[in-house]
Computed example of a mutant assay.
Amino acid sequence: MSNPQTEIWDIYDVNKKVTGRTMIRDDFHMKPGEYHLSVLGVVKRTDGRFLITKRDEKKRWAPGHWETSGGACVAGETSYDAVLREVKEESGLDVTGCPHKLSLTYRRDNPDEGDNYFVDVYLFVKDFNEDEVKLQEEETCDFKLATFEEIKAIGEEGKFLHYNSIKKVFEDTI
């Protein structure tokens, strides 16, 4: 895992092409048309339940909210490699070689914050036992295997990050 203080991210253009320029993690001074790239990994078991994790209560943004594993791509990293790394870091699950697909990509423009980004959302199918889940300290504090209906209810309460942007992935099949 990279040191967050020295983590470097590529800057992308509006067409999601690498510009050749970089930024330091969380140093949001992006101009209109500049973006960084993040990923989310939705892990589905063949019984139809999804792995969701709860953000640590000490996180500065959205503590205690539910989510799927994810994070930013570091400079030179593909979104696929980043999602494999993030799922492994945050949940302990290795989804390398599992049936998967890039389910969707969305873009957020936040000019007032200088934080514009793309998010690649991958869907993986992996059967695993609950004792295989190893949460990343200071990132996640709990997990559950949830049905789409349970995730939808959490999303409607406003307690599931990115829910409105990714809800169709939970209905997707590989």
Rank of each mutant, 00 (worst) to 15 (best):
M1E: 11
M1Y: 10
N3R: 04
P4S: 02
P4C: 01
E7D: 10
K16R: 14
T19K: 04
G20R: 10
M23Q: 07
D26P: 06
D27R: 14
F28K: 10
F28Y: 13
H29F: 05
M30D: 01
G33R: 02
G33K: 05
E34R: 04
Y35N: 01
Y35T: 04
Y35M: 02
H36I: 14
H36G: 15
L37D: 11
S38E: 15
V39S: 01
V39L: 01
V39P: 00
V39E: 00
V39D: 00
T46M: 10
R49W: 05
R49T: 13
L51T: 02
I52K: 02
I52P: 03
T53K: 07
T53S: 12
K54M: 09
D56S: 05
D56E: 09
E57F: 14
K58R: 13
W61C: 07
G64Q: 09
H65S: 08
E67H: 12
E67W: 05
T68P: 03
T68N: 10
C73E: 04
A75D: 08
A75V: 06
G76Q: 03
E77N: 03
T78V: 00
T78D: 03
T78I: 01
Y80E: 06
V83M: 00
L84E: 00
V87F: 00
K88A: 01
K88R: 03
K88H: 01
E89N: 03
S91I: 01
S91D: 04
L93P: 06
L93W: 03
D94V: 00
T96S: 13
C98V: 03
P99Y: 06
L102G: 08
L102T: 05
T105L: 01
R107Y: 07
R108F: 07
N110R: 15
P111H: 07
P111D: 10
D112S: 12
E113R: 13
E113Y: 13
Y117H: 09
Y117R: 09
V119P: 10
D120T: 05
Y122N: 05
Y122F: 15
L123R: 13
F124N: 09
F124A: 10
F124H: 10
V125K: 14
K126T: 11
D127T: 04
E130S: 15
E130Y: 13
E130F: 11
D131M: 14
E132V: 13
Q136F: 15
E137H: 15
E139R: 14
C141Y: 13
C141I: 15
K144F: 13
K144D: 11
L145S: 05
A146T: 05
T147P: 12
T147A: 12
F148N: 14
F148M: 12
E150C: 08
K152C: 06
K152N: 12
K152I: 02
G155P: 10
E157A: 11
G158C: 11
K159V: 04
K159L: 11
F160G: 02
L161D: 06
Y163C: 06
Y163N: 06
Y163F: 15
Y163E: 06
N164R: 09
N164H: 08
K167V: 00
K167C: 05
F170V: 01
D172W: 01
I174P: 00
